[in-house]
Amino acid sequence: MATVVLVTGVSRYLGGAFARSLGSDDSLTRIIGVDVVPPPHPIGRAEFVRADIRNPMIGKIISQAGVDTVVHMNVIATPLSAGGRTSQKEINVIGTMQLLAACQKADALTRLVVKSSAAVYGSSPRDPAMFTEEMGPKSLPRAGFGKDSVEVEGYVRGFARRRPDVGITTLRLANIIGPGIRTSMTDYFSLPVVLAPLGFDARMQFVHEHDATAALVRATMAPGAFGNVNVAGDGIITLAQAAAMVGRPILPVPLQAAGILGGMVKRTGLADFSDDQMQFLAFGRGLDTTRMRQSLGFEPQFTTKQAFLDFAGHVPALLPGATTFGHAVQDAAGMAAGALSQVLAGRGAW
């Protein structure tokens, strides 16, 4: 059983929520929250220590405090919040490498819990209806958070071989959504116009922010280790259904042009788009959550639809100025589609 827990990434929304929730368990003697900046939100009875997991100093903190459980929450999904893609990759990949190196030397360590993502499965037209934990991606994520998550899990597997005495649980969370958290998906569905790949209506699963926190607490406090575990709310919704729930019009664009438009929106700072995200918006993803229930013993309170509706209920209504923005996006879409058709026509001539 966990007694001294170290949590990384407590200054981020989900890390702070997890630390507060974990603090309600009286069986824990000490909770240490680390991050590079002080948390802007309460973290309960967790003690904040300003530290960078990319610095070997993290090893001293783990050993001196006698940490027996490490919960790695500091895998960042959006480069905008990390200060750019380069910083995001350093924190996600280099930070994980340094943290695991410190964990390898910690004799008292008995458990490691890692917050990962269903993005490791990628998105492609050859995907199965539901991914189980034993399945690999049909098309590996090529960039961004998905690629980082694949690398992080690779380092975790290497750590498991070096420290077989440490129980490891890696939670592959579906896209997290809710009224308080901000992610690339919440930004996307808050846009005045929802850009959707033409001819596709992706199947999507979500996990509510409260369920994501509860699943992490369960993985930390339940006896045993569970390996890789998919975490998602029951059921699916399509992209068109989600857009209707938030009251946003859909602007269909060719998949090849969607990345161009996504880049334009990204530069405005309104939402964070990547090529892998555009693939997800075209092909979607489904998760089998049998292990979540049978092994981890966790049952989400929110279905996928209920989680999205809770988020949708807090999305601001469209403002008059949004119409102008929508027209600008439509004009840009027309220009991008026209340019794309010319390129394809040129290819055909060759």
Rank of each mutant, 00 (worst) to 15 (best):
T183N: 08
V166S: 06
R267Q: 14
F226M: 00
P125G: 11
N230L: 02
R172C: 10
V315A: 04
N55P: 00
D211P: 14
T304I: 09
L195E: 02
I168N: 01
D275T: 11
I76L: 14
F131N: 05
G16F: 13
I168E: 01
T268A: 09
T110A: 13
T3H: 15
L198E: 09
L281T: 05
S139V: 00
V4H: 15
I53C: 03
R218I: 00
G262M: 04
G33T: 12
S184C: 13
G263W: 11
Q301K: 14
A322W: 08
I177N: 02
H72T: 03
A307E: 06
A214S: 13
A160I: 12
P40M: 11
P56T: 00
P128S: 04
V315K: 08
S87V: 01
D107K: 15
E90H: 07
G263Y: 08
R203W: 10
Q64M: 09
P252R: 07
H72N: 12
A312K: 14
L281C: 15
L255F: 11
G259Q: 08
A77S: 15
T238M: 05
G66L: 11
G158F: 12
I32S: 13
L198P: 01
V114W: 03
P125W: 07
V265L: 14
S117R: 10
R45P: 04
R50S: 01
F311T: 08
T324N: 10
V343I: 12
R111Q: 07
R347C: 07
R157P: 05
L239S: 05
T169P: 04
A243F: 05
L281V: 08
L296C: 10
G33D: 11
L318G: 04
L99F: 13
D165L: 00
I31E: 10
V71S: 06
A212E: 05
